[in-house]
Design a protein around this nucleic acid. Structure first.
Lengths: 334, 334
DNA sequence: ATGAAAGCGCTAACAA
DNA sequence: TTGTTAGCGCTTTCAT
């Protein structure tokens, strides 16, 4: 038989107090004596009582729920981000609803609509893309890796990203230190700020080292896929027979590039060295293992959740813009 | 300013009817004239009204929400499964909450507790593992790939899995057809039904072909990881210098095995042929591409959602046990 | 420090 | 066919 669900009223009865008092104890607001508190807490414990979130949400006009919007959880990077956040939110007693948009604006819209009717307390956007649905959920929002459009965003929000310029710089600098003279770049086309900044970092390092900057060394892919990475590498090699290093603004691209090299018997790192960005787990399994720029998923998740909870609680937002350090991980590909 | 949220009552007023009528139109139950329906629907459309799920859930004692429990969304197979289900559930106007347990019983418990207080209407378990938390949520449940414990499950449920025996048989048969005489197997230890059945299929094919069955050809890993696959291959090779084929009961294991071969300059498929199971996307990117047994994630997702919705709606469950066909995909590794 | 009571927005039983 | 109304379980004034 279904273990009959306990209600506030029943707890109140068993504890010999009014429901208002029980509510106060649970939410730790208002006043009540230490004794009452203990008595109520014991009963709650004993009956394993959990407040009905629906009733609570209805009353407060917002649920203990936050939405996490990701373009594609099938991508390990997004998946890790989402789960790291989920477990942290759970600790704060918030249910995280991971919504996969599959890059589709209509699915995103449907999700937002559902989230709204579920009275979500906050939103986290994890994405490299700039899906420009003017999401009209006016709730505290965290953007990861994607600059919120300055207009049309009246809700309080925080933007978190890695030191992308610095990452591009470090990666390129590393290639130079390893002796590369003719360094190509594979990046994502369009105005995605993260990739663009990494590209700028690449240019910066080249300039600093006095290396010539040549458009033939640039390749911009349409998407972040292994196939695009392979194609890009092929193309770069065709245009530059003296290519000896490549910086890719995403690991997936770099891994695709490495694959192309392997299939075509071009030795990495001897002939061409490669550096990626993100540090996903497959980096350690490629042949050779991929050198890359590491972003701390845990740190990003931690800060995102922390800031979101603060905003939800109405605490003043300290910094609307957070930039996180990255680090270089040298492996076999350089 | 926040676009003031519309309520049932306001819609009723604008349409000049009572709230009960609007409710009837929305839920399509009870009676109402065509005219009224149109008028109400127009207003709803105009104001882009969406019923408050909290109020509704509170009243009906269950929300338009279902929980999807996965051990690790970071694993592409689970991730795909989860998103395929999520998009289908969204079409049915259900919000899918993807809960990552990270193989931890305590996290799973916390999730279930939250789901319960959110009044979920149903549950889907996607897992190869047998996390034996006696989850006491009495709601319609679908188990994928994992036999529900016969005791302690009073809730209505459906169990969906692939033809695992047949898959193991086909994979091994394929190796035999390609000329292998000494075929090893890498599987997962423990009493996971899916892996066990695949193992039985392997034995069946060997017997049928009159090939000797030798314990030296078996290796059981502790987990499904690339590393375990590599180690297993190493071990198998050491014990059998005439090994010419290996069937792995999961792609991840097979990919790990292939990696070991590549790193040690053992040519696949010439010297050793390998077949996996699942058909995850990395199969096409390994060197050589991995032959495998394909399971249709879409089909599983479709059936799971379909059956769950039926159960939630109280429709009679047709079959509590569904077995799905698989197919062999031959690639470079054989 | 505690209780009584008014809803939050919705569904469903009962009336009309 | 449509309206009236009583709650669902909780939070939160306002009394006491």
């Amino acid at each position: 038989m279904p273990p009959k669900k306990v209600t506030l009223e029943e707890i109140a009865q068993m504890a010999g107090v009014s429901i208002a008092t029980v509510s106060r104890v649970i939410n730790q607001n208002g006043r009540f004596s230490k004794e009452t508190e203990k008595r109520v807490k014991d009963i709650i414990e004993k009956y394993n009582y959990r407040p009905n979130q629906m009733a609570r949400g209805l009353r407060k006009n917002r649920g203990k729920v936050v939405g996490i919007i990701v373009p594609d959880v099938t991508n390990e990077f997004f998946a890790r981000m989402a789960v790291e956040m989920q477990v942290r939110l759970l600790r704060e007693d918030y249910m995280a609803i991971i919504c996969n948009t599959n890059e589709s604006a209509s699915i995103e819209k449907a999700h937002l609509s559902m989230l709204k009717s579920l009275l979500v307390s906050g939103l986290i956007y994890i994405t490299h893309e700039s899906i420009d649905v003017n999401h009209t959920l006016i709730v505290p929002t965290i953007y990861i890796d994607r600059e919120p459009s300055p207009n049309a965003n009246e809700s309080e929000h925080v933007f978190i990203e890695s030191e992308n310029y610095q990452g591009g710089y470090l990666a390129t600098r590393h290639l130079i230190d390893r002796g590369c003279q003719r360094i190509g770049i594979i990046s994502l086309e369009g105005k995605i700020s993260s990739h663009n900044n990494r590209f700028e970092g690449y240019l910066g390092a080249l300039k600093e080292a006095g290396l010539p900057i040549d458009k033939d060394l640039f390749f911009f892919t349409k998407a972040v896929t292994y196939e695009d990475g392979s194609l890009a590498m092929d193309n770069l090699l065709e245009k530059n027979n003296d290519l000896d290093g490549v910086f890719c603004t995403a690991d997936i691209l770099a891994l695709g590039a490495l694959q192309f090299l392997l299939r075509n018997d071009i030795n990495a790192p001897e002939e061409v060295k490669v550096v990626g960005f993100d540090d996903i787990s497959s980096c350690t399994r490629s042949i050779p293992p991929l050198s890359t720029i590491h972003q701390s998923v845990e740190l990003i998740a931690e800060l995102a959740v922390q800031n979101l909870i603060s905003m939800i609680n109405g605490d003043p937002t300290e910094k609307p813009y957070i930039k996180l350090p990255i680090s270089l991980i040298a492996r076999g590909s350089t």
